[in-house]
Design a protein around this nucleic acid. Sequence first.
DNA 1: CAGTTCGGTTTAGATTTTCAACCGAATTAT
DNA 2: ATAATTCGGTTGAAAATCTAAACCGAACTG
Lengths: 181, 181
Amino acid sequence: MVGKHKQTCSIAGFLNLFGDAWTLLIVREAFYGTTRFSDFQRRTGAAKNLLSDRLSKLVDHEILEKVDIGATGAHYVYNLTAKGQSLKPLLASIIVWSNEHLYPDGQEPTLVLSRETGEVVHSFEMKFDSLQPHVAQDLDVVAGPGANEATRKRLTVGPWPASQRGPENETEETPELKKEA
Amino acid sequence: MVGKHKQTCSIAGFLNLFGDAWTLLIVREAFYGTTRFSDFQRRTGAAKNLLSDRLSKLVDHEILEKVDIGATGAHYVYNLTAKGQSLKPLLASIIVWSNEHLYPDGQEPTLVLSRETGEVVHSFEMKFDSLQPHVAQDLDVVAGPGANEATRKRLTVGPWPASQRGPENETEETPELKKEA
DNA sequence: CAGTTCGGTTTAGATTTTCAACCGAATTAT
DNA sequence: ATAATTCGGTTGAAAATCTAAACCGAACTG
């Protein structure tokens, strides 16, 4: 796949990779510590063939790496690469924007916290020092006041990206957006 | 539309609005100063019915506002609302990430500059002061070394978001990604 | 008053997504 | 030993979405 957008534009290039309903959700899952095919499927709700396709695409683009575990069997883990982890500030930005503009105050499903102070992050700015490596390693994502039980259970576990956790039973329901659609 | 993702998750909520190939590209166009239906169509390449649908959705969500100009005729402009303009840091983040990870050095189609220093912005960090309004008003987006003529012509004009510009003739071509797909 | 522009809608066909069924290899249970 | 289950998919059929082109009315232009 060469990508649908032919424009010379950094945003169009991004959309060629992430401009669909599932890819970024799969990356989110990877940050939540999900590594197994079946866990991605259960936790995102994506169909298996589509999930298979998107995982391959992410592996092709070196956002994830596929590692064969289990001596001979069909057992793999998908891990975030360094490139994949570099998406963290972007995901954090998306959470912050969504919380401010899509959810009523006090109903945010997830929150971005400063790891240092524990305070909720509400806004962000570009950093002008081009010599520094990526920052935003000092951010955590935790369940917000609008999180349901399933979400809360998964987000009370640790830092982001998290190490792998076992496959608990989850069923997600009802969002509750500020503006309808 | 209620949204495809039912999960209680700020990222899923975002994807319910922006998780497709065109919506964010239309918002980008709005930042580039595009306001008219036909200009959106020509500059994004989206089919008219899909563009119509997406513009309505963005108006519903108050990212854009539709203003009737021209006394009686079918003449409208779509303007970014304050909520729409609040997406600027997110779009800037996307450009910065794409430039670092999708394009070879020196072939970035668009660049994010500090308005103050004129320097290229390479990374960003969250701002922990929750009392401040959105920042990143001091950023400009300009054509990068990898921009083609069409892109360059449109991006040499001014600040971002730009005021409306006339409909020049553009035809976009060939991207050139670091990793194939 | 004929043709063009603007902002769409409609329709038909192509593509993508969903959903369920199926599959082989390995692992666990009886 | 053999049956059932898990894992990581693939296949195929139906539904939904997207593309591309045709069409449309209401200005406005020549």
